[in-house]
């Protein structure tokens, strides 16, 4: 069974442990600006919304890549950036309609969530279970994919 991140904004306290864990795991430093998951703050409503890649089936980022540097991870279903192949052209960053592939100027490459290879550290770090890693069917993935469908450029087929 494929698993995916399930995010429940109602449980998020905005502590940013997920961002710290992500940055440490992927960049080797505690720096929330380097995190692949971002917590957005809605001041007026007092809400926090963690947000990252849903590993969508359409994988616009992967199809838009001109040098085949984004591949499907057969074990987890995540779409992974192969850093050695990425030239930093950023086409994936505008192709992804969710805005979850981002350019890292320090490395000259793009970065995105790769589910930490199947052991997502944001989940491990979240103290309130706002982010969990569960069977894909149990998540709002379908809802997200419906949204994804709205941005598709083709109909039928």
């Amino acid at each position: 069974m494929q698993k995916s991140l399930n995010i429940d904004p109602a449980k998020c306290t905005g502590c940013l442990q997920c961002e710290m864990a992500c940055s440490l795991e992927n960049e080797g430093i505690f720096n929330t600006s380097k995190s692949r998951i971002k917590v957005f703050t809605f001041h007026e409503e007092g809400k926090f919304v963690p947000y990252t890649c849903t590993q969508c089936d359409e994988a616009w980022c992967m199809h838009a890549c001109p040098v085949d540097a984004i591949v499907v991870n057969a074990a987890t279903g995540s779409k992974d950036v192969v850093a050695d192949l990425c030239v930093g052209c950023k086409v994936c960053t505008i192709a992804c309609p969710f805005g979850t592939v981002n350019y890292n100027a320090d490395s000259g490459k793009v970065v995105k969530c790769d589910l930490c290879g199947g052991d997502p550290q944001c989940v491990a770090a979240c103290p309130t279970d706002a982010i969990t890693y569960v069977d894909a069917n149990a998540t709002g993935l379908d809802k997200m994919r419906q949204w994804a469908g709205k941005t598709d450029t083709t109909v039928g087929g």
Binding site: T93, C96, T100
Partner: peptide
């Protein structure tokens, strides 16, 4: 701007 620019496409296309 380098972060989340793809949502501009998402909002336009949806």
């Amino acid at each position: 701007l380098t972060q989340h620019v793809g949502v501009l496409r998402g909002l336009i296309q949806s």
